[in-house]
Computed example of a mutant assay.
Amino acid sequence: MRRRTFPLPWAAGYGLARTLLALGTLGTLVFSDAATLFREVATVGRYPLCQGVNAGGAFCLVSPDHYDTVRWLCCLVLVVAASGWRPRFTAIPHAYVAFSVFTGISIPDGGDQITWILTLLIAFVAVGDSRRWHWQSSRVLEKPESRHHALWALLSTSAIVLARVQMAVLYFQSCVAKLPHAEWADGSALYYWVNNYDFGAPNWLRPVLGAVVDEPLGVAAMTWGPLVLEIALAAALLMPQRVRWMLLPAGILFHLGIAVVMGLWSFAIAMWAGLLLLLSPLGHDPDFKRLLHRASRQPTASQARSDESAEVRVPA
């Protein structure tokens, strides 16, 4: 029977995305107390609403007096998940915390939503990950000889592919949703965003950005540049891998800029995780220890062979 091969999904690359997703939610919970996270919203009510599916969130299971206790317990779960220890056992608690935060807090942002979606998809990968740490190379795994193991690898890979499609759709929607607005079409939108008192540039950065957006060429470049990058990221899955690697630092700097200017750090961290899933090859397995301690000498032949990711075969 003819067989096809694909890289094992349980590699160090997806582990970094898991860590970033956990750190983004952790930052929200650590730096915001219960009084800030849960408050009344006009015409809606006091959060958490605890209606329908949302009633299953962690903050709906206790009284308001215990919100801070649950918040710190969630932080503990996120610290363990971010550490990379036993992804098989931490995947579902991590996804549950992401769900509880997104559905429970008064004013969730896009970062909380994409964190919940990506964490849920990654849970399908992590539950099948038998490694002790998600930082370990997939080479520590035994070759999946059984049909059951191969099918689980296929399910996990499918979850990562779905996450990549989700990110591509997100960037496509983000770009095309701006186009009907006159400010984005004529290149002036960033002038208003930079000077916005709620989400605009911080005081220490306002003079520099103000000088740029006051110039027609500068404001047009700052407005249309993100649109070009977003549509390129939306089409990234159709591009060669070498082009995707070039898009990765551009995307990271793009979201870093949004975080610095608008203060949306949890959103930026979630999008960095999504960029890693979108732009890295399937089964990407960087050797983080070697990268941190790499000497200037050229790698040996055995080291070069060790960089090859493990593969699994499934019936065609």
Rank of each mutant, 00 (worst) to 15 (best):
P7T: 06
L8T: 07
L16A: 08
L20N: 00
L20E: 02
L23K: 02
L23F: 01
L26H: 01
T28N: 04
T28G: 02
V30Y: 14
F31G: 03
D33A: 05
A34D: 09
T36C: 02
R39T: 12
V44P: 05
P48S: 04
Q51E: 08
A55L: 08
A58C: 04
F59N: 01
L61Q: 14
D65K: 13
H66F: 10
D68W: 09
D68N: 12
R71L: 10
W72A: 01
C74A: 15
L76R: 15
A81S: 13
G84S: 12
W85T: 11
P93A: 08
H94D: 09
A95I: 07
V97R: 02
V97I: 06
A98I: 00
S100E: 03
V101K: 00
V101G: 00
F102A: 03
I107C: 10
D109G: 14
D109K: 04
Q113T: 08
W116P: 00
I117E: 00
L118W: 02
L121I: 06
L121E: 05
I122S: 01
A123G: 11
V125R: 05
V125F: 10
A126F: 13
G128Y: 12
S130G: 11
R132P: 04
R132F: 14
W133G: 03
H134L: 13
Q136A: 12
L141V: 07
L141P: 10
E142T: 07
P144V: 01
S146T: 15
S146N: 06
S146E: 09
S146Y: 08
R147N: 14
H148L: 15
A150E: 07
W152E: 07
S156D: 01
T157E: 11
T157A: 10
L162G: 10
L162C: 13
A163H: 02
V165K: 11
M167G: 06
L170G: 03
F172N: 02
F172H: 06
C175H: 09
V176W: 13
A177R: 12
W184F: 14
A185D: 14
A185S: 15
A185Q: 14
L190N: 02
Y191H: 12
Y192N: 06
V194G: 02
N195H: 15
G200V: 12
G200Q: 13
W204G: 04
L205H: 07
R206C: 03
P216T: 09
A221D: 00
T223G: 07
E230P: 05
A232D: 09
A235L: 15
L237F: 10
R242A: 08
A250Y: 05
I252N: 04
L253S: 10
L256I: 13
A268S: 15
G274M: 01
L275P: 00
L276M: 04
L277N: 00
L282Q: 07
L282A: 06
H284I: 01
H284A: 08
H284Y: 15
D287H: 11
R290C: 02
L291A: 11
L291F: 11
H293R: 14
H293V: 13
Q298I: 06
Q298S: 12
T300D: 06
A301Q: 14
A301R: 13
Q303M: 04
R305A: 11
R305T: 06
R305C: 04
D307L: 13
S309Q: 09
A310C: 15
E311C: 10
V314N: 06
